[in-house]
Design a protein around this nucleic acid. Structure first.
Lengths: 109, 109
DNA sequence: CAGTTACGTAAGCTCTTTGTTACACATCCT
DNA sequence: AGGATGTGTAACAAAGAGCTTACGTAACTG
């Protein structure tokens, strides 16, 4: 579940989203973000070490591809919890609807 | 997706797992971990702020419950990627191994 | 072959995170 | 009332994450 730490960062999640369409070069990815290119390079390294992406050199460019396996693992990790929102969600909502505010922090309505 | 940051920590994931069975008191949770009780208290705070758990006071103890909604959100976030490992896993591996490009993303040259 | 292009790495800084010990309360039990 | 029990918060040290600038290097270009 090292992938979770990698995906905790919003920039990295966006990189993953960009890669969902197919191979993208490092520089092209970097162009999508307000941070410096080395910063993106570092994010790519984290994603690489988490197994979420792979690189392929084409000339002087590095083409990144998404490797779905860690996402699949995450999906598997999530599996045992699925029944919770299949049944319990309504129960919680009902409780809230009755005015039993369990959450102290103001929430949207 | 603040839940991802909360779930990035292994201790917190284990807490979530422990809570999958139902309500558990803070002290009982803390007993499962090698870290100090205040440390666990802090983890619980992070989980609370991420909306993953709720607390209920019963006498002097605080009973924690899992709130599945952020997990459901995570499941929803994961959804667009599911087709990747449903069909493409093997294909991607093969493609990468052969060094072919999966999909030209508006590159010039 | 020299210059440009595309990347990654190194060094350094700052803000967070995680853990610890010490402390403050509220609640339960004689 | 007074002590034990169960928890959260405060203060602080250590480690980590993320960003920036500067630099090194391989590959195209002319």
């Amino acid at each position: 579940m090292e992938a979770l730490a990698a995906l905790a960062d919003p920039t990295r999640r966006e990189i993953v989203a960009l890669l969902a369409g197919g191979e993208v070069a490092a520089g092209e990815l970097a162009a999508h973000f307000p941070v410096s290119r080395p910063a993106v390079s570092r994010h790519l390294r984290v994603l690489r070490e988490a197994g979420l992406v792979r690189v392929r050199a084409e000339g002087q460019r590095r083409l990144y591809v998404l490797d779905p396996r860690p996402l699949s693992d995450l999906d598997a990790w999530l599996a045992p919890y699925r029944w919770l929102w299949a049944q319990r969600l309504d129960a919680l909502d009902t409780e809230i609807a009755r005015g039993r505010r369990a959450r102290p922090t103001g929430e949207d309505r």
